[in-house]
Every structure is written in structure tokens, then in C-alpha cells.
Design a binder for these strands. Structure first.
Lengths: 346, 346
DNA sequence: CTGAAAGCGCTTACAG
DNA sequence: CTGAAAGCGCTTACAG
């Protein structure tokens, strides 16, 4: 057991003051060459490393970013964390990850916890419940305390802050247009309940695409799913009850499930029915047939979010003057998406 | 902008000392009823929350756990983090996540970084490069400083600490035995290079199963893959060059890739060839056909690891006496696995 | 019942 | 060139 050594201990050993040790290690010119050498040698020998908590307290910044997301067992979110972590690391930041489990309460608790000094800023994506309740006081509060927040993917207009999103509506529009271009007319939609912001936007894109091509919207061809876990029966009867030549699914889980359901119902993908998903995850890639999908570059979203947050953090340091000057010029970055064609469409 | 309030500010406002404020908020009986009330009311009004960094410095513990894993875009690891996070949260701990990207250097840097006061203990899984180099000094060092470490999945015997693993060899044995029980004889193995500890163990299990059933081991039926990203061609020619009635794949990526390759080569899964994977991930579940696999309960591993770490942390608090007493009685927990039968075997 | 002091580990403006 | 002091935000043993 060789406990970490502190400035104090070095000072005692070398019979100098703590200040002298501190300055020596920072190569201050204030200190005489020889003592500096001596201190540095000793510090090296004992592998001295400054205590980061002490530094955090002193500097009033922790060099760590708080991430709050609904869940992590979800390729997209894992992907975003990866992007954040890598960029953050590059800039000397660490990340703390909290999961809201799609629960409003957990989101609030986690945020308050981290906001009490543990981190310098947040990167977050809203839980379903939060989106449903439309209660964002916990976020506004944190921002009011001067802590920057960057929201990604599941964002809200009710909070002013930096955001990074994709154009869900446009991406969905493009995907559906792609189907229409292949002269499909009976295009179904499998989507989520409306309070999930991205689901809603993707639904809008679908509707817009049909409308702008003068295809009549048939409510029977639209399925809104609440319970993701048990959607396969629902999708199966949906496919059975109506006729389709293509399906646009709002996420990849719906897309694979649709493929499996199609097989059960005796439809061949892509020969009888084409399917396009959303989110370029691992499922789409390894499904058989592999799934044509709207790629949603999670790594890039994460990197971008981290970049925006860190830039704001470092800017704050310089000019924490005009705090009252409230034209914070928040930005919303839109990450481009593109369609990855694979085997589920033809 | 309403900055967070501190004890000092409350003290000033109420014209009492900082100590009094602190004690009042902790409901110390030392303090008079009325001042206690007054302070608490004021604190509530201004939504006072203690600064956790200051507490960390004072208490010399951070209530946060450091997680170091090779990558996060990998269902299994995401699953473990989820388990850790949930258990940790329950016990009032947060988690910091660092990715080594399978690099030895990044693993070392991240560990040293976090070890400088940011966390109370580590939960980690070794990077490939670390396993290859067999250099674990960074881990021993941290342990020597009195910081507990729990290793999971990719562990090593060269470091004494708590571990949580599955019995990779036994699980592989069982999986292969399962195939043998179905009277398959020409059983192939798709595995990793030997320095990946779990790959090696799973290979051993495969060999043991064949041997104990007096099936001759045919090196041509064993494929060791180095580059996971580009394994599909390799697997395809492997399937073409030899005849199999079943395949045991050491992870799910190899398993799906084998399924796709089998199709290409004109083999029907499971009619012509049965395939068993390892790791019950999302791919296995949604692949077509879905994949029979050895479930490796990541969530449970994570929970267990967190439990072991936190128990050690809380124990340390009580009896940090007999530090020299080195019978630390480290434990290695073995999480049970089981075979999930799905469509890829018959 | 209240408060000054010391301390967690560090930094830095200021004396000497 | 070196060190004492104050301070980051908190806690707690100890005086008064």
C-alpha cells in the first residue's frame, strides 16, 4: 500500500513550503533553479500527480461533462456516447453517464445530482416521459445557474440552448420519396406515439411526401405503436389487414420486426414488399435481408454536441463578464443524414 | 442567471456563522430550534444543495465509480454499463465512463487520469492490446494505492483483485455438447486470435467437448479470425472449403456473418447447417433466422461487479485499520450462462 | 447555543 | 528566491 503523495508531504520531506513545491512543479520562474530541480526530481520519484478534485474545487471547473440519456442499451445512444467520449477525451474532458430509463423523475434527480458541482455542462436527450409531460423546469434551472446544456436528438423548443439534431422530417420525406420514385403507391408507416418528438417529425415527413406526390393518405396504412417490446403481433396483423408494396418504419426495431412479420404472413422482402428503416444500427446491417435505412450518424452527433458544449465552456472562462447580455446566440446544428440502400428494398 | 448558493452566502445573509448554517442543515441538536428553522427555511427558499466536489475533497471519497472498457458500441458492454449504472445509482454512486478503444496506452492514460482523485474505485475489462502485451502495471499500481478494482469478462490472473466472469470454457463446452447431442459430428469453430482471453477459453471448451465425445479434432474446421471487421470473405471460404453440419461461433458477429455466408454458399440454416453463437445480443435476437446462443447476462455482470466494488468501498471505510493484513480475500464471481435456443439450430 | 479554527489538496497574489 | 496567507465549499472537534 503506497498511498498517493501530496504537495504537503513533499514539502515536509524536502523541508520547504507547500507554495514552493507547487510553484516548482509548475516551472514558475519565481523559484530558484536548484530547488526547482530538487522538487521535480522528488515528485517524479514518488510519482506525484495533482489531486483533480482539489483542482476542481479551486478552479471551479471539473473538466467533466454530464451525459443524460434515456438508455444505453440502444445502439444509437451508445454511438452518441462514443462520439462524445472521444471528442471530450481529446480536449481533456471526462464524461459521467446517467440513465433516465425514460423516466421523468430519474432524469430530474440525475440532473440535480450532477449539477451540484460534479460537472461543467450537460449533453442530454429527453426521456419519453419528459417529452410527454412537457415539464422542462429542471433543464431551465440548470441553464439559469449558468451551466451550459446541449440537447441532441430528442430535443424541445421550450428550452433555449444549443441543440444538435437531424432533420427528421426531411429525412423521412426523402426515404418515402425514394419509395415513391420506385413507383410504389401503397406505402405504409409504422411509427411511435406522437409525443415522442422524433417519431412525430418522421410521421410528418411521411405525410408530406405522400401529399406532395398526390398520393391519398390512408389512415389504415398507418400504425402507431406504444409498446415497443411487444409490437410483433400488432405489426403482423397490420400487414395482414392491409395491402402494401412498401413500408417506412420509424426505427430499426420496427423495421426488422416488420421483415419478420412479412415473412410470417408469406410476403417476401423485397420482392413482395420493400422496407425502409431509420437509424443505421447494427440490426439493419446484420438482418437478413439487410435493411435499407436512413443513416443517423450518432458518432457525429455526439462529437458535434461535445464540440458545442466545450466551446461554450471555454468561451465562458474568458468572458464571464457580460452575463446579463442575454443574446446567447444558441445554435441548432443539423447533422446530415443519407439513405443507405441495402437488401430490403428493390 | 441565479448562481448556486453556498453556505457562506447563507451565513452572511442570516448573519450567523458558516458552522451554524452547516450544522443547522444537518439537523444537529447542537443548534437552537429557532435558528435551525430559520436556516432551513432560507436554504429551502434558495434551493441550497451542497457542492459535491467540496464534499468529495473533505470526505476523501467521491461516490463515483470509474468504468474502463474497450468500447461502448457493442451490445455486451453497453449492457454491462447499464447494470453497473443502475446498481450504482441505487447506492448513491455515479459512474464515469472511459473507453480504451482496445488500446493499451489509452487504457493506461484513462486509468491514471481517473485515479487522481476523481473516483473511488474501478470496474474494468481489459483492452485487447493489454491482453496481448500482458502488461498490467497500471492496474497493480492503482490497487497498491488502495483503490479497489473489479475486473469483468476480459480479466487476467496476473492481477489480484475481485473479478466477475462467466465460465467461458464450460459455456462453450455446453454449447458444443448441445450440438453433439443432436448427433452432429462435423462441428466447426469460428474463434478469435488466442490472446483474447475469452476467445481462448471458448476455444478450449470446444476442444474439450469434442475430445470427451471422442470426436477427432480437425484443424481445418477451426477458423481463427484476427480482423473482425472484414471476416465475411474469410468465413465464406472457410464454409466452402470444408464440410460441416454445425458451427460454434465465439461471438454473435461471427455467428451472423456465418449465417449470411452459409446462405451465399447455398446452405440453409438450420436445415443444412446449425449455428450457435455466444453473447445474447440484439443481433442474435433479430437475425433471420434468429440465432441460438449462449446467453451472457451483461446486466447481471454489471450489477454484480458494482455490488462487489461498492461493498469493498463501504467496508474500507469501517476498517481501514488492518491495511497490512494482506489476506484481502478477493473473490471471483462466476455468472451463470444458459443456452437460448432459437431458429439457427434444429 | 454559537462560532472560530483546522483541515481536505491545491493555487496564487502578496510580503519579506 | 521563499513562504505565509487566503481561498475554493464544506465538516467537525473544540472553545466559549
Amino acid at each position: 500500500m503506497r498511498k498517493k503523495v501530496t504537495l504537503k508531504q513533499i514539502a515536509r520531506e524536502l523541508d520547504v513550503s507547500i507554495s514552493t513545491v507547487s510553484k516548482s512543479l509548475k516551472n514558475s520562474t519565481e523559484i530558484g533553479e536548484d530547488t526547482r530541480q530538487k522538487v521535480q526530481a522528488f515528485a517524479k520519484l514518488y510519482n506525484y500527480k495533482p489531486n483533480l478534485i482539489a483542482l476542481s474545487l479551486k478552479n471551479r471547473k471539473t473538466k467533466t461533462i454530464g451525459i443524460i440519456i434515456p438508455e444505453i442499451i440502444h445502439h444509437f445512444f451508445a454511438t452518441v456516447i462514443s462520439g462524445i467520449e472521444h471528442y471530450a477525451n481529446l480536449k481533456g474532458y471526462n464524461v459521467m453517464v446517467c440513465l433516465s430509463d425514460e423516466s421523468f423523475d430519474k432524469e430530474v434527480i440525475n440532473m440535480e445530482m450532477l449539477a451540484n458541482g460534479s460537472i461543467d455542462g450537460f449533453i442530454m436527450s429527453l426521456s419519453k416521459e419528459t417529452q410527454q409531460k412537457k415539464d422542462f423546469h429542471h433543464i431551465s434551472e440548470v441553464i439559469n445557474q449558468g451551466m451550459p446544456v446541449v440537447m441532441f436528438d430528442r430535443v424541445t423548443n421550450d428550452v433555449l440552448c444549443d441543440k444538435v439534431i437531424i432533420d427528421d422530417s426531411l429525412a423521412a420525406f426523402d426515404a418515402v420519396q425514394h419509395l415513391i420514385d420506385k413507383s410504389f403507391k401503397k406505402i405504409g408507416l409504422i411509427t411511435t406515439i406522437d409525443y415522442v418528438s422524433v417519431g412525430k417529425l418522421r410521421t410528418e415527413g411521411y405525410l408530406k411526401a405522400l401529399r406532395s406526390n398526390d398520393i391519398k393518405i390512408d389512415e389504415n396504412r398507418i400504425l402507431k405503436i406504444e409498446d415497443i417490446e411487444n409490437c410483433s403481433d400488432e405489426i403482423e396483423s397490420f400487414l395482414k389487414a392491409n395491402s402494401f408494396d412498401a413500408i417506412f418504419a420509424v426505427n430499426e426495431l420496427f423495421a426488422v420486426t416488420a421483415i419478420k412479420a412479412a415473412h410470417k404472413v408469406g410476403l417476401n422482402v423485397p420482392n413482395d414488399i420493400s422496407i425502409i428503416g431509420f437509424t443505421d444500427g447494427i440490426i439493419s446491417k446484420y438482418s437478413s435481408p439487410s435493411i435499407t435505412t436512413v443513416s443517423q450518424n450518432g458518432v457525429k452527433m455526439g462529437q458535434k454536441a461535445a464540440k458545442m458544449l466545450i466551446e461554450r465552456l471555454e468561451a465562458d472562462v474568458e468572458e464571464n463578464i457580460d452575463y446579463e447580455d442575454h443574446d446567447e446566440h444558441y445554435k441548432t446544428e443539423v447533422i446530415e443524414t443519407n439513405l443507405i440502400e441495402r437488401e430490403s428494398t428493390k
